[in-house]
Amino acid sequence: MSLCNVSLQVIPTVNEDRIYPVVDKVIEYIASKGVKYEVGAMETTMEGELEELLEIVKKAQEICTEEGASRVVSMVKIDYKKEGVTMDEKIKKYRE
């Protein structure tokens, strides 16, 4: 397979003062997986093999419920093409 990008936004149903701590646990998990990722104000974008990134998305739901969320709403975006796609090719010109 080729590299793709998956963006994930999790919205856990918890008390307002727990939202960031729960999201932080998801981001810690993403970091522990060794995939390239970038945290944004509204979502986290990851780069890697589609299968691995989808497993991370799945585990993110479980992390939220383990942290006390009664429900999790997630938005997932996938950018995939046969030749592969990287975050750098999309945003490099904005970072120079």
Rank of each mutant, 00 (worst) to 15 (best):
I56Y: 12
V85W: 00
L53Q: 11
S74L: 08
P12Y: 12
K92L: 04
Y94A: 12
D24P: 09
V85K: 13
I30N: 07
L54R: 10
I63L: 05
V14R: 03
S74R: 11
V57A: 13
V72E: 07
V76I: 12
E16T: 14
G34M: 00
M46C: 11
I91V: 14
K77V: 01
E89Y: 11
M1N: 10
V76M: 08
M46N: 09
E62H: 10
K92Y: 04
A69H: 05
N5Y: 02
R95G: 02
N5H: 05
V72W: 14
I56G: 09
A41W: 02
C64P: 01
V39A: 09
D17A: 03
S7G: 15
E55K: 14
E62G: 06
S70E: 15
E16P: 15
E55V: 06
T45M: 09
I78K: 00
Y37N: 04
V26L: 08
Y80S: 02
R71S: 05
E66P: 02
E52V: 08
S70H: 13
Y94V: 05
L50G: 03
K81F: 01
Y94I: 11
V39F: 06
E38Q: 10
I30S: 06
T86S: 15
E55C: 04
E51D: 15
E66F: 03
V22W: 02
E47N: 07
C4V: 02
E47L: 07
Y29F: 15
E51G: 13
T44S: 09
I63F: 12
Y94F: 14
E67R: 00
E89D: 10
M1Q: 13
M75D: 08
R71Q: 14
G48P: 15
E49Y: 14
A60P: 06
V35P: 11
K36G: 01
T65H: 08
E89P: 00
S70F: 12
N5C: 12
E66N: 10
I30K: 07
Q9L: 14
L50Y: 14
V72T: 15
V72Q: 07
V35K: 07
E67V: 00
K81T: 02
A41C: 04
R95V: 10
N5A: 05
R18I: 00
T45N: 08
V22C: 01
I56N: 10
S7H: 02
Y80P: 00
A31D: 12
N15V: 03
D79S: 10
K81C: 00
D17I: 02
K92A: 09
E67L: 01
L3C: 02
Q61K: 13
D88P: 01
K77M: 01
L3M: 12
M42N: 00
E49A: 09
Q61L: 07
Y20P: 11
Y80M: 01
L54E: 13
V76N: 10
A31K: 15
E52N: 08
D24H: 13
V23G: 03
T65W: 02
I56E: 10
I11K: 14
K25E: 13
Y94M: 14
L8Q: 13
M75F: 11
E89M: 08
V10K: 03
D88W: 12
Q61A: 10
M75W: 08
L54S: 14
E62N: 06
I27Y: 11
T13Y: 15
K59M: 06
C4E: 01
I11F: 14
A69G: 03
